[in-house]
Amino acid sequence: MSLLDDFAHKCILMEKKRTPDGAGGYITAWEEGAEFLNYQSLDTSMEARKAEKEGVTSVYSALVNQSVPIEYNDYFRDTETGITYRVTSNPEEKAAPRSAGSTIKALKFFTAERKELPK
C-alpha cells in the first residue's frame, strides 16, 4: 500500500459523442469512458488564487498513471462525488523529476477545474 492510496479518487473519462438529429444538426451526448485513479488536491497557491480571481472556479492539481489517456480540455467525473472536472493543462508536459521514486515516475501531472459538461 502506498501513501498515495490515501488520496486516490476513482474517476472516469467522459467521452463526447455526436449523432445526427435527423433535421440536419447534431445532438451532443456524453458517455462514460476509461476508469482511472486520480490523486488530486485543491491548489491554494498564489497562482491558483490569481486564476480564481480571473474567473476560474477552483484549480486542482492532479496526478494520474502515465497510461491514462487524458488530454488537455478532456472532462472526467469523480465516481464517488459525481463532480465533473475539465483538464486545464497538458498532462504530457509535466514529467516527474529524475530524482523521484519509481512510483512517482509512473505518474503525470495536470491541473483541472470543476466544470459541468457542456451541452
Rank of each mutant, 00 (worst) to 15 (best):
T81F: 03
F110T: 06
E113Q: 15
K10R: 13
M14T: 07
T84D: 04
Y75M: 06
S61W: 01
I83V: 15
E80M: 08
N73S: 10
A34H: 05
E31G: 01
V87Q: 01
P97C: 02
K115L: 06
P69M: 06
E47Q: 14
G22H: 06
F7C: 08
D43H: 08
T103N: 07
G24Y: 09
L117A: 05
P97R: 07
T111S: 10
G25P: 02
K17F: 01
L117D: 10
E31W: 00
V56W: 05
W30D: 01
I12Q: 01
K50N: 13
S102V: 14
L37I: 08
F7W: 09
Q66L: 14
Y75K: 03
Y85A: 01
N38Q: 05
S102T: 15
R86Y: 04
D5G: 09
T28Y: 00
R18N: 07
A100C: 11
E71G: 11
S2M: 12
D74S: 05
K108V: 03
L3R: 12
P118E: 02
K105Q: 12
T44Q: 12
E116N: 11
K53H: 11
P118S: 13
R98T: 12
L42V: 13
R18T: 07
E15W: 03
A112K: 02
Y39C: 06
S41M: 09
V87W: 00
F110E: 06
L63R: 00
K105F: 07
M14K: 09
Y85L: 04
A96E: 03
T57P: 10
K115I: 05
S102N: 13
A34P: 03
P97M: 02
E52P: 05
S41L: 07
K16V: 05
Y75S: 03
K10V: 07
R77M: 06
A96H: 05
V56S: 13
E31T: 04
R114F: 06
I70G: 01
Y60H: 15
A106M: 09
R98E: 13
E52K: 08
